[in-house]
Amino acid sequence: MLISLQRKDRASLEPAQGSFSHHRQHGLRIDGRRTTELRKIRSITSTLSQADGSAYLEHGNTKILAAVYGPREVRSKTNIIHERCYINVEFSMAPFSTTERRRRAKTDKRMLEIAQFVKQSFEPVVLTQIYPRSQVDIYLQILQHDGGILEACINATTLALMDAGVAMEDYVCACTAGWIDKEPALDLNSVEEAQDTSEMTVALLPKSGKIALLQMEARLHVDKLEEVLQLASDGCRQIHTVLDRTIRDRAEDLAHKMPSSS
């Protein structure tokens, strides 16, 4: 479990935009959702044929591609861990992913941090000890950015790892929730994030209910924490059903293609 609480400084990853005013209108949020509703999620697996496992995921307008290579032999000897496998995560954003095109340096601290978050959320969930002295590479690329990058990263990684057949304890489902205009709201988009919102990302293992990651960079009154956490956890469970459906569909599809086992 990883808890990260730090000062908010996400400027470097924010989509460029003018100032919108976005009060909540008559019970509906700026895009027409209610506070407890997720954005539309679409996902497919095995989108890339070169990778061992891959997934494409949309959280509303946030679009992400994940590719998994491995488990395979460790590339660099220094990374060898004798009793388990080494997980390597690389995160990048397409220059065209935000409204203003911008190429980002590989060393962008915020991007390295996101990669680190993903790595740390999955290390305890992947059954690393059954792949000793090997390496799993996870490549994540944001194609379009509309808020909630970290949740998208984690969900896409879950799908890609499963697609690659990497053994895992459980799904890892992530979701954000924040506090807007005196109410908790689920799954913030970039407009909602851009306000000075207290936003929390939660990654949950739905079977055990364990929290794999809890990340928040703004201040939130402690009395409200429970409520926001609850909402985010509910979101994670909803996401779980979506991801599970995707995986099952893919499995059925594969089963059809298998030469009949009889």
Binding site: A16, Q17, G18, I30, D31, G32, R33, E37, R39, K40, G60, N61, T99, E100, D146, N189, V191
Partner: peptide
């Protein structure tokens, strides 16, 4: 939510430094 209930709004906007860019927003019916 069903597919036909999902729309995109796109419009152009000028930022403070004067450059124009396209903004895409989700719009749920």
């Amino acid at each position: 939510m069903k597919e036909p209930m999902w729309r995109q709004k796109s419009f152009y906007q000028k930022n403070r430094s004067g450059s124009v860019f396209k903004v895409i927003r989700e719009h749920y019916l």
